[in-house]
């Protein structure tokens, strides 16, 4: 009886050991499994970190390269655009505001007093180098103000006053052409009653008197005329 119990006890003890060993092995296995799982997650994070680091460094490098290039080129592009625009504006302004003398010559030749002889002795157009009162002088002689001056002789058929009025009418007729006023301004005619120029011409009726014509174009506010 005692021997039988002893055998039973040994079997129980063996079973207990088996249970304990199996339990420990299971726990260690599960722990290892968890460790492997966490390790894999860590490795995955490491890969993602490396990837993000590489991306960040790539962006940083691209940024540095691009910034270096743009710091050099962007101001130049701005300057070029601004300069192109100014050059274009200048060309357009020049072509729009350039002066033509041929309309002035045409108009001067076209109009004269209705009665009596009339001719010009000299006509000149002078570039004005100094600014005129009330108008801003452009920086270039290409668009500078111009002054017309001329002298001539007119036959006084009726009276001095009538002749003066006829000359003023000539000035008005000439200034009706906008090309003339744009080029030299509004011409004004004036009898001078110069004794030396006056007097009678041989074989002709009436007196002759000198006249002067003057016009000045004041360039201001885009080319307004006086």
């Amino acid at each position: 009886m005692f021997e039988l119990n002893l055998i039973k006890d040994k079997a129980k003890a063996r079973q207990r050991r088996r249970i304990i060993v199996l339990s420990v092995i299971s726990i260690v296995f599960l722990a290892a499994l968890c460790s492997v799982f966490v390790g894999l997650m860590t490795a995955q994070e490491k890969t993602r970190t490396d990837l993000q680091q590489a991306t960040a460094q790539k962006y940083d490098k691209e940024f540095s390269t691009l910034k270096g290039r743009l710091d050099n080129e962007y101001p130049k592009a701005q300057d070029r655009k601004k300069a192109m625009k100014l050059a274009w504006d200048e060309d357009v302004k020049l072509l729009n505001e350039r002066v033509f003398l041929s309309p002035v010559l045409t108009q001067i030749a076209q109009y004269k007093p209705a009665r009596g002889q009339f001719w010009y002795s000299e006509i000149s157009v002078t570039l004005m180098s100094t600014p005129t009162t009330g108008g801003a002088q452009p920086a270039s002689p290409l668009l500078a103000n111009r002054e017309l001056s001329g002298t001539g002789v007119v036959q006084i058929v009726d009276s001095d006053i009538v002749t003066q009025q006829a000359l003023e009418a000539v000035g008005r007729q000439i200034s009706e052409n906008p090309d003339v006023t744009r080029a030299v301004g509004v011409p004004t005619y004036e009898l001078t009653f110069d004794e030396q120029a006056g007097g009678r011409l041989a074989g002709s009726a009436g007196r002759y008197a000198r006249f002067v014509v003057r016009a000045r174009r004041d360039f201001g506010g885009g080319g307004t005329e006086r």
């Binding site: 290892a32 993602r48 970190t49 993000q52 680091q53």
Partner: peptide, 28 residues
């Protein structure tokens, strides 16, 4: 001991790695 291993890996390796990832993500 078995629990200590994964927990140790988690706090010792995984957590710093996530912080680094976060930092580089923000940086990127």
């Amino acid at each position: 001991l078995g629990a200590a291993a994964p927990i140790g890996i988690y706090f010792g390796l995984y957590m710093p790695q996530t912080k680094q990832l976060e930092m580089w993500t923000l940086n990127a």
